[in-house]
Amino acid sequence: MVATEPRSARTLAASPGTNAPSTGPRKRERRALQPHGLPWILPGLVLSIGVLYFCIGYTAVISTWEWDGLSPTPEFVGGRNYAQMFRDPVFWGAIRNTILFFVITFTVQTALGMLFAVLLHSRVKLGVVYKVIIFIPVVLAPAIMAPVFRQFFSADGLFNGILEFFGLGAITQPWLAQSSTALWVLMAITVWQWTGLTFVLYYAAMGQIDNSIIEAARIDGAGNLRVIWSIIWPGVRGTTVALAMLGAIGALKTFDWPWLVTVAGPNHATEFLGTIIYRQTIPNYDVGYGAAVSVVLLVLALVMAIILQIRGRERAR
């Protein structure tokens, strides 16, 4: 992954039968002659790591305290917050929810984002209208949309109305008021909000793919699906990996929607690590416990990032 093997759009997009410029050992030799790159990445490291790692260290220290966030005399409790967390079924429920949530939302967003990007790169009229509609949810604050969605999915809300209209009255139900369905509603809301992001990035990435390769493939008789599968999909792999990482981190951090729409309920059905951290840190004054969950969140996110990076690299080879 990380630039050990810089790949051009051309090589990435190369499909059988096209001439891609060869990359190989020759290049690696030359790279060794390149100047040292540390100064280039220094500003980023200083800004992000400088500012945020202080916070991470601070959080790690607090996670060993029993502390209300105010008292000048926190009590050192070692690993007790961690032990308490690993015993807590709510924590494990949140982990389960997170995994399910990530798998579903990532898959659906990727599929929809790709589809929209491909369709809108085709000759569709009024493309800009569609783009704006798909994109607007990205800019809307969950705090404001939460009541709108509660109404939308309530027992006598618009969603059930639509179901009835299509003769599906039998399956109408109070979607957010049931442990069995609330999580799915939150997934739908998340997909609604973030498909715009997926779409915009795929759209930009697809613009990078050399049209002549697609033309060449078509001349070779490749159909639409074949072009998507063999040229476009591999051509946007970098974006997909990036989105997968973001999606995983986003799923781990999920907080806004479940907290605002269902208060992580009913009965912890929409509990996430983010909601646990918030509840413990702010309303429950258990800042130490909240910090311990944050540290675990951080570790999980790092592990996820590493797995995705490695897998992304393997598949790129």
Binding site: S48, I49, M245, I277, Y278, G290, L297, Q309
Partner: peptide, 17 residues
Amino acid sequence: WLLLACLTLPEVVLLAP
């Protein structure tokens, strides 16, 4: 990875530090 890990801390946790 160090850089990416910065994405994971929830805002609430960042406030105090």
